[in-house]
């Protein structure tokens, strides 16, 4: 079966565009970083000792679960798949090492999150361990991501100030 040349060209162009897009995801993906912090903060507020009002807590829980199982997985998953090669090939040992740890933590946190979503904390030992894994992995993950991406982080105050100045100068 022959394929029209125009289609082949079109398919190739699409692939290329997609590759470029995917390739571009690896660099300073602010949405992915922001999402990670949102998940971390919302998860933190669900922590029992903080005793958030139930009227807020219930919505926060739903948001944390839904976002975690959908947008977070897609966005951060795409970013991570693209960013991996940077981690592996990074010249600076610090970025390579923290990147690898982040990879594992991300995996742990996400998988445990899915377990909690579908099976929950029914009180058996496995569920309790997984709950702890989710909690402690996130506690390490968020600050580590911040440190790892410090120079480009959305939370880097210096960056934010400079960005604002640039906007002012342009105006």
């Amino acid at each position: 079966m022959s394929v029209p040349m125009t289609d082949v060209n079109h398919e190739g162009a699409l692939k290329e565009r997609l590759y470029k897009r995917w390739f571009g995801l690896a660099f300073r993906h602010t949405q992915a970083e922001k999402l990670m912090y949102v998940m971390f903060i919302s998860g933190l507020f669900l922590w029992e000792p903080l005793q958030l009002a139930w009227s807020l807590d219930r919505w926060l829980l739903l948001m944390h679960m839904l976002v975690g199982a959908s947008v977070f997985t897609l966005v951060v998953g795409a970013f991570w798949s693209s960013h991996r090669r940077l981690i592996v090939n990074a010249k600076r040992p610090f970025l390579r090492q923290t990147g690898t740890v982040i990879e594992w933590l991300l995996l742990l946190c996400t998988l445990s999150g899915f377990y909690l979503f579908f099976f929950g904390v029914t009180g058996n030992n496995l569920s309790l361990v997984i709950q702890d894994v989710h909690f402690y992995s996130s506690m390490v993950l968020a600050p580590l991501v911040f440190r790892h991406a410090f120079r480009w982080s959305v939370l880097n105050i210096k960056q934010i100030v400079m960005k604002r100045r640039k906007v002012k100068v342009k105006a």
Partner: peptide
């Protein structure tokens, strides 16, 4: 979805 929430955070 409600059941999933209860299981995920059953304390309340």
């Amino acid at each position: 979805l409600a059941d999933r929430q209860i299981n995920a955070q059953p304390k309340a």
